[in-house]
């Protein structure tokens, strides 16, 4: 029963194979098997969003998905957000707008914000707050995070 399973998937655009136990979550698979430690563990109950990755473009708490469920999916993690050395506008704005303090929640916020902007390039403040409600930050009071997403949206729209 404990035999490991081979999972063929795509991670950050790269076809990837990995071996995992069925009981290993996608988060464990990313961190402990593949060494992609950018996705963070905060609660293991889907309440903090620090482990958010995109699965076929949708935001998912990777702590609440099994590694074996990644078969045939396209996974995007924070490590895949920039294109080479070209930061995603969200990353750039998070830096410029001082949107992170300790930074542990940052990867999750970036991925949730990317999922939002990919579907809704011009969100209102209320839409941003709704889309980020599954990500907890305890340092910033969210103010500068929300502003960075607004500003990134502006950049991406060429405004």
């Amino acid at each position: 029963m404990s035999k490991k399973q081979l999972v063929e998937t795509t991670i950050n655009g790269e076809p990837t194979e990995f071996l995992c136990e069925t009981r290993q979550s996608l988060l464990e698979s990313l961190r402990d098997v593949l060494g992609l430690t950018g996705s963070k563990e905060g609660c293991l109950t889907g309440d903090c969003g620090a482990c958010t990755v995109l699965v076929d473009g949708r935001p998912v708490c990777s702590c609440l998905m099994l590694g074996v469920e990644a078969r045939g999916k396209k996974i995007t993690t924070v490590e895949g957000l920039a294109e080479g050395t070209q930061l995603h506008p969200l990353q750039q704005k998070f830096l410029e707008d001082a949107s992170l303090q300790c930074g542990i929640c940052t990867p999750g916020f970036l991925m949730s914000a990317k999922a939002l902007l990919d579907r809704n390039p011009n969100p209102t403040e209320a839409e941003i707050r709704y889309a980020l409600a599954g990500n907890l930050c305890r340092c910033t009071g969210y103010d500068k995070i929300v502003r960075a997403v607004m500003n990134a949206a502006k950049v991406m729209q060429g405004r």
Partner: peptide, 20 residues
């Protein structure tokens, strides 16, 4: 821009649980 910021937005910053 803070000096440690880049590592934190690209997922490279190492927190305690990230060491192996």
């Amino acid at each position: 821009v803070r000096h440690d910021g880049l590592d934190k937005v690209i997922g490279r910053a190492k927190y305690g649980a990230d060491y192996s």
